[in-house]
Design a protein around this nucleic acid. Structure first.
Length: 609
RNA sequence: GCCAGUGUAGCUCAGUGGUAGAGCACUCGAUUCGUAAUCGAGCGGUCACGAGUUCAAAUCUCGUCACUGGCUCCA
């Protein structure tokens, strides 16, 4: 779990035990580094054939990768942990030795550790070895604690085993990785485990099921979510909100089909560069299939929007032209990559393609970033990182010339500098047609997901020979901006569920108000009140369950409904409801009209009741 | 796709070789109740699917599918 999540679930009372990230604590760096070596030593003692590779710290612990024929089991972890405790209790001194490259090579060869040899080739001087007394040593840069006795045997744990590729490359051998965590005190370890469990309670898959927002059905297929009425209300509210924002900024809605000819995607380059991520082509017969004549499900919306642009000869007076669509796309993600709503095979992009003149590019890019940031503000999303996603010049997975890429990347760099925002740069993260500015969020497990994105594209206008007529009558090529503030509605909903822990703000809540009758005789009045609320668009309902009040309240609380209205004899008499909110509890009786006015105001201002 | 784990009622889970259980939900009946669980009865499962071992399989073996964690990959 990362600190951003821990902050989210940290109440003042729970923050007594501080859990720093490894990068924030020299002590934890040393403890975790040394613990990973103790792990490796223990593994090699128990499994002499295991070869060591690397064992770095992570922000919450450490891991070590081994090459071993038989993968580790959960039971092995217990045995390994016992062996580690033994090593810790021996209080072996950790000794640093600086050696020449030749000497290191000689010693590693003597041990027969080919992976270490490869590492040696890739590191800079000084070359240091760390010894656990005279019993074990590893090529390592440190830092370490002074003795294995400095590791608290009650403050570390082995968490899980996993496969991992050598040097992160799927073409290389698959190694066996053991993940562990280590802290200064047993109390920190307990707190870490507690927070991890706490975080899991807000997992969007768990809450999505409990709140009845979406589901997956085996017969429909993996990674293809189905949205319930409640989940659909949530999605639509988000979509409507963004549509309104876009209307204010000169966007025009379009609608395009879910499938198109292969030829379209050949023209765009998708068929050549993106085929592996697409569902297989549908062809009428074998002959058509052989000739690559068929239809594919769209993995992106851009080629379709381009056709709309191309439909007429455009003038510079028409630009910028901003075509927007909530377009559902399909990508054939590998099975092991699917998970909840954050990674699916069919999802809806809040897509827009802006066709601009070169002169308009910078301003238009800035205004898109402004829209994205304002959307995040409205959703109260504060914990994100901005990533400039550039191409990897060494890779051949991109289309277009170096010159054009330099221009596009330059435009993004100018924009983030003009905005003075914090960002980081990542090579190899660009789309195949252009560089991006991406906005990255974290899920409950600390995994990072891209949500919003803006992309500068000189390549598709070229490939589709897009033009506009300039002031001087000449034909010019427009630049395209691809952008999606949400990124994907599915992923956004997943992240929002976790951010809010299922407690949606009033304006987003699928069910905003539930009226509870103290006994059945008050149901008619409750229905009357609900009808008034529904008439002005408030998502209200009556609990018709016939339960006692306590039970009805419990049900509404569990459903995380923001506002409850209790109705009994007194309320009917006074034409009022007794308001109870999820956030603040009982608020007392309030005339129906006043309650409705207040609700209505809170919803439209995105405030709370 | 790769490594590992999991799959029992709508949900959460118990059941480790001898013909399947609990709580909640749902239905019905009684109760008409004032801020987080009223009482009782009933319904509900080809134990993911398919093979195999066995006198006998939810339980053991193999395969398939799905999910979970990790790797690779990505909105």
């Amino acid at each position: 779990m990362s600190p951003t999540e821990s902050q989210a679930i940290d109440n003042a009372a729970e923050a007594l035990i501080v859990l720093p990230r490894t990068s924030e604590s020299e002590t934890l760096k040393k403890i975790r580094h040394t613990t990973s070596h103790v792990l490796a030593m223990a593994v090699q003692k128990l499994f002499p054939k295991a070869q060591v590779t690397i064992g770095p710290w992570t922000e919450t612990g450490f891991y070590y990768d081994f090459d071993i024929a038989e993968p580790f089991t959960e039971a092995d972890l217990k045995t390994i942990k016992k062996e580690m405790v033994k090593i810790i209790k021996k209080k072996l001194p950790v000794e640093r030795e600086e050696v020449t490259r030749e000497e290191a090579k000689r010693r590693i060869e003597a041990l027969g550790e080919p992976y270490k040899l490869e590492i040696l080739d890739s590191i800079q001087e000084p070359i240091t070895l760390y010894h656990l007394a005279d019993q074990w040593w590893d090529l390592c840069a440190g830092p370490h604690v002074e003795s294995t006795g400095d590791i608290n045997p009650k403050a570390f744990d082995l968490e899980t085993v996993a496969g991992a590729y050598w040097r992160g490359d799927a073409n290389n051998a698959q190694l066996q990785r053991i993940y562990g965590t280590a802290w200064e005190t047993p109390e920190q370890l307990q707190e870490y485990k507690r927070r991890k469990e706490e975080a899991l309670k807000r997992d969007h898959r768990k809450l999505g099921k409990e709140l009845g927002l979406f589901l997956f059905a085996d017969v429909v297929g993996p990674g293809l979510p189905l949205w319930t009425p409640k989940g659909t209300l949530l999605r639509s509210t988000l979509e409507d909100f963004l549509k309104e924002e876009q209307k204010k900024r000169g966007y025009q809605g379009v609608v395009t089909p879910h499938i198109g000819r292969v030829d379209l995607f050949k023209a765009s380059g998708h068929w050549q560069q993106y085929k592996e991520d697409m569902f297989p082509m549908m062809a009428e017969d074998d002959e058509a299939a052989a000739a690559e004549q068929g239809f594919v499900l769209k993995p992106m919306n851009c080629p379709f929007h381009i056709q709309i642009y191309k439909n007429e000869l455009r003038s510079y007076r028409d630009l910028p032209m901003r075509l927007a669509e909530f377009g559902t796309v399909y990508r054939y993600e590998q099975s092991g990559e699917l998970g909840g709503l954050t990674r699916v095979r069919g999802f809806t992009v809040d897509d827009s393609h802006l066709f601009v003149t070169p002169d308009q590019l910078d301003d238009e890019f800035l205004s898109v970033v402004d829209l994205i940031l304002s959307v995040f503000r409205s959703l109260n999303l504060k914990k994100f990182k901005a990533r400039m996603s550039f191409r990897d010049p060494a890779s051949d997975k991109y289309i277009g010339t170096d010159e054009v890429w330099e221009k596009a990347q330059g435009a993004i760099r100018r924009a983030v500098q003009a905005l003075g925002m914090e960002y980081f740069e990542a090579e190899g993260e660009a789309a195949f047609y252009g560089p991006k500015l991406d906005f990255i969020f974290e899920d409950v497990l600390g995994r990072e997901w891209q949500l919003g994105t803006v992309q500068v594209d000189y390549n598709l206008p070229e490939r589709f020979e897009l033009e506009y007529v300039a002031e001087d009558g000449s034909r010019q090529r427009p630049v395209m901006i691809h952008r999606a503030p949400f990124g994907s509605v599915e992923r956004l909903v997943g992240i929002l569920i976790e951010e809010y822990a299922g407690d949606f703000p009033l304006w987003l809540a699928p069910e905003q108000v539930r009226l509870l009758a103290v006994s059945d005789e008050f149901l008619p009045f409750a229905r009357e009140v609900v009808a008034k609320m529904q008439a002005i668009g408030i998502r209200a309902s009556v609990d018709e369950g016939g339960d006692r009040l306590g039970k009805s309240i419990r049900n509404a609380e569990k459903a995380k409904i923001p506002v409850m209205g209790v109705i009994g004899a007194k309320e009917v008499e006074a034409q009022a409801i007794s308001v109870r909110t999820r956030a603040s509890g009982e608020l007392g009786s309030m005339p129906v009209d006043e309650a409705i006015a207040k609700l209505s105001e809170a919803i439209s201002s995105h405030g709370s009741f």
